[in-house]
Design a protein around this nucleic acid. Structure first.
Length: 861
RNA sequence: GCCCGGGUGGCGGAACUGGUAGACGCGCAGGACUUAAAAUCCUGUUCACUGCAAGGUGAGUGUCGGUUCGAUUCCGACCCCGGGCACCA
């Protein structure tokens, strides 16, 4: 009987899923004396193309961990589900003119059966789908919680909006406005990235992907929902410290949040256009260079531009702001090589020296960052320098590098003034009044103190992070549980009215006007507010795809609870996720959004952990056989179905892990895959006689000899450590299994207990063949519930060791010797070695270095 | 430009806290079995020079330099590749 992967794999998949071997019991049925382990894959999007080889790579890794932890006696939670709202499903529906639900259901069936054909040990009873009404009811519920919360700055946490202190002496309308201005979810009219082809707005971070696909993106002012993630900037940053995440992902998030310390400084404005006092605040990270500020620049969108611009400058300013508004972010940054700007006719007064400096507008200053206005210090900022040179604005050096010699100073000043040198590092302040002579750090502190005393500014921290653009003009997403009353006010639905389900529509195409297709369904849109009897229209935007995946890991824990998204008891037992694995393409977006969402739930008391994902690992990409990214157009896509049919799921799993460390990007190789199949065949024939189907006659129940034992125990140790240490280098585990099998082939008699252990060690990697061999050896039950083999550390040590003899660092001889010999014995053995003697003959021995159990190095001259 | 990774045989990769570079697999070459092929098994496989041979000598982990008895591993400078950010003041 030959190894027949098709038959065996089908058989064991039916067994596992039929008997629900990997079902995680309800909390009350669980043996809570055991430790828990929550191992999670990133929620896949079930696309029409089916599974890609990249998917099973990460899933195999988590599956190995899940099966291993289970055998180690943990209560393991290993679930799977679907992220199915969003553009791809909707575009498929538009094209085929079917309801997106139909397409999604088909894709889910396909994905599920593909995943099952790989034998993954998921608990399918906990499967979730973000597009189920029962699921998105809770997404909407959480949105209401966010909407009905504000951020308490003092405590740095979200609180229910009911607890918000409303300033007295406000009218009813003002109170309403004030409350809305504090909510964590709010509507704002601001320029957004509008994509005419898709008929929707895109978040900044989604823009590059769509442009790559050939779509155009333009700036357009629109009313949009946003979530106040910026309030959590500091906590999102600090929280990274305690997480066991790859350093580069932490760095990526850190850069994305982009914290910078500095000061805001008020400048008085003088303009013929108005009388009285007006200030403009700027943000700077270098308050120590304030004496070198020679002009001010406002972003074209700055609200003061219209107010301060003088008559004679109005035309060119208007022209400039209009051009800037039409440009997309892309054009304003990347495509722009030289800086442009115009003079407003107004002047600002530098608070430290009362110098009158011109106020310019230029689109190299961004409205979205800081205050939308800067003080320009061309001597010590490259962008300002470039602009100053072009428009012939003065440059004043106010910082000198450390260690600059006196005789070099004159030349340095000249170089800065003429634009030859732009020194942006820290140094010492010069020409700077009361901070002259101070090093940069001290100068900064002194200026901030001075500004604060005079109430002209203050120390300040800025973040690059922007609020999360949370609405899309699409059909296929969670509807907002919000109505717009005829009196112009907005109102949230009550929790008991959830879910607010999607209505049936005739067309899923965007309305074209910038509104979602929902806007055309008047039955659905028009409603009446029960409380006030006022007519109302429903919000027709839907939530972005990220919403559902912000909390799915909580639903797995308690998937059928109708009372709450997840009970407190379940949350406390299972959270946080112990190991999270997915692609690094989600390094900032999903992982940052989910952390934010989770922190809000934490602040409001719905979850017990501050961070959801304790340990994170990013799998690398799998390239085509030609070493480039797999793509349909290149025709180098590997279909997992074909691989499983030709070589089997076990071979595929094994090869995916054997290719290299999990995080590495590596090319697929079908011949390498065949090698894995060959290895499994060798394991099979080690135990089973190909012709008769019987167990090989050289296998006996006799106790194994010491050599076998040592090999076994060494292998157990190696594999146990490999899975436990979190490095995800399963390639070396598999190599060790191969060595083990190769050695066993050399033996005349093999102990059955050694083979049983081999099968158990192999089982997390190649579970189907392992189950089959296990049962052929006479076991009635699945090995999934067996105990993981234990090793005796004494037996993992070799008793003979090859000692290397070298002369002047060059290997000249080696000898098998007992372990733990004294230095003197090793030294003598080296000196006795024939080849060593040849190389030291006639030379002086300077020194002999002995490294126990390793080597002897003789230094001669 | 800035911030992360990474450069090891023909290929994927291995090498514990500085101590035999190339584990394991693929490929390739030779051999065995076979009428033949497939499958399987055995042997070899970093490069150069040298030897009939066992072997010997030298070089070698992107480049150059340093520390050390000894460096893929530590330090410095540079080159190349991949990823991320990109006028964030």
């Amino acid at each position: 009987m030959k190894y027949n992967h098709l038959e065996i794999e089908k058989k064991w998949q039916n067994y596992w899923y039929g008997k629900k071997v990997f079902r995680t019991p309800e909390l009350r049925e669980l043996d809570k004396s055991k430790p828990k382990y929550y191992v999670l894959d990133m929620l896949p999007y079930p696309s029409g193309d089916g599974l890609h080889v990249g998917h099973p790579e990460g899933y195999t890794a988590t599956d190995i961990i899940a099966r291993f932890k289970r055998m180690r006696g943990y209560n393991v939670l290993h679930p799977m589900g679907w992220d199915a709202f969003g553009l791809p499903a909707e575009q498929f529906a538009v094209k085929k003119e079917i309801h997106p639900r139909i397409g999604v259901d088909e894709c889910v069936i396909r994905f599920r059966s593909q995943l099952q054909s790989l034998g993954f040990a998921y608990d399918w009873d906990r499967e979730i789908n973000t597009t189920d009404e029962k699921y998105y009811k809770w997404t909407q519920w959480m949105f209401l919680k966010i909407f009905n919360s504000y951020f308490d700055e003092r405590e740095q946490k979200a609180k229910p909006i009911k607890e918000l202190k409303i300033p007295e002496d406000l009218t009813e309308d003002e109170q309403y406005e004030y409350v809305n201005s504090q909510r964590l979810a709010y509507i704002s009219e601001s320029p957004v990235n509008w994509c005419p082809e898709l008929g929707t707005v895109l978040a900044n971070e989604e823009v590059p992907e769509q442009i790559e696909k050939g779509f155009t993106v333009v700036r357009k002012p629109m009313k949009q929902w946003k979530l106040r993630i910026t309030k959590y900037a500091e906590r999102l940053l600090k929280g990274l410290d305690g997480l066991e995440w790859p350093e580069n992902i932490k760095k990526l998030q850190t850069n994305w949040i982009g914290r910078s310390e500095g000061a805001t400084v008020k400048f008085k404005i003088e303009s013929e256009e108005f009388k009285g006092e007006k200030d403009i605040e700027v943000f700077t990270t270098r308050p120590d260079t304030l004496f070198g500020a020679t002009y001010m620049v406002l972003a074209p969108e700055h609200p003061y531009v219209n107010i301060i611009t003088t008559k004679e400058n109005r035309d060119k300013v208007n022209k400039y702001t209009e051009t800037a508004a039409r440009k997309s972010d892309m054009e304003r940054t990347e495509l722009e090589k030289t800086k442009t700007g115009v003079f407003t006719g107004a002047y600002a007064i530098n608070p430290v020296n009362n110098e009158k400096i011109p106020v310019m507008i230029a689109d190299y200053v961004l409205m979205g960052y800081g205050t939308g206005a800067i003080m320009s210090v061309p001597g010590h900022d490259e962008r300002d320098m470039e602009f100053a040179l072009k428009y012939e604005l003065p440059i004043i050096p106010v910082v000198v590098p450390e260690n600059m010699k006196e005789e070099e100073l004159e030349r340095y000043y000249n170089d800065v003034k003429t634009g030859k040198v732009c020194f942006t590092d820290n140094g010492y302040s010069v020409n700077s009044g009361f901070i002259t002579g101070l090093p940069t750090a001290k100068a900064k502190a002194k200026v901030i103190k001075w500004l604060e005393e005079k109430r002209l500014g203050k120390g300040s921290i800025n973040y690059k992070l922007r609020d999360w653009l949370f609405s899309r003009q699409r059909y296929w997403g969670e509807p907002f549980p919000i109505i717009h009353l005829e009196n112009g006010k907005i109102k949230a639905l009550k929790e008991e009215d959830l879910p607010l389900t999607l209505p049936k529509v005739n067309s899923y195409k965007p309305s074209g006007t910038g509104e979602s297709p929902l806007a055309l369904i008047s039955d659905w849109v028009n409603t009446i507010d029960n409380e006030t009897g006022l007519k109302a229209k429903r919000e027709t935007n839907t939530m972005p795809q990220w919403a559902g995946s912000c909390w799915y890991y909580l639903r797995y824990i308690d998937p059928s609870n109708d009372e709450i998204f997840c009970s407190k008891e379940n949350d406390e037992y299972w959270m946080p996720v112990d190991q999270y694995i997915g692609g690094s393409e989600h390094a900032v977006l999903h992982l940052l959004y989910a952390r934010f969402w989770h922190k809000v739930l934490f602040d409001l008391g719905y979850v017990s952990s501050d961070e959801p994902f304790q340990k994170l690992f990013n799998q690398g990409m799998i390239l085509g056989e030609d070493g480039v990214k797999m793509s349909k157009s290149r025709g180098n896509v590997i279909n997992p179905d074909d691989v499983i049919r030709d070589f089997g799921a076990d071979s595929m799993r094994l090869f995916l892990m054997f290719m290299g460390p999990l995080e590495a990007t590596k090319p697929w190789n079908t011949e390498g895959l065949a090698g894995m199949n060959r290895f499994l065949n060798r394991v099979w024939r080690l135990i089973i006689d190909d012709k008769t189907g019987n167990i090989n006659p050289n296998i006996s129940i006799a106790e194994s000899d010491l050599k076998q034992k040592k090999l076994l125990h060494f292998t157990i140790k190696k594999i146990t450590h490999d899975i436990e240490d979190g490095d995800m280098k399963f390639n070396t585990s598999i190599a060790q299994l191969m060595i083990f099998v190769n050695e066993l082939y050399k033996l005349e008699n093999i102990s059955i207990s050694v083979l049983e252990n081999l099968i158990l060690l192999l089982s997390p990697f190649a579970p189907h063949i392992s189950e089959e061999l296990w049962s052929l050896l006479g076991h009635q039950e699945t090995l999934a519930n067996e105990k993981w083999p234990q090793y005796n550390d004494e037996l993992t040590k070799a008793d003979k060791i090859t000692i290397v003899f070298s002369v002047n660092g060059k290997v000249r001889g080696k000898k098998e010797m007992d372990t733990d010999l004294e230095d003197k014995e090793l030294e003598q053995a080296a000196l006795d070695d024939e080849s060593v003697r040849k190389h030291i003959y006639g030379k002086n021995i300077v020194k002999i270095i002995v490294v126990k159990n390793k080597m002897v190095n003789i230094v001669v001259k």
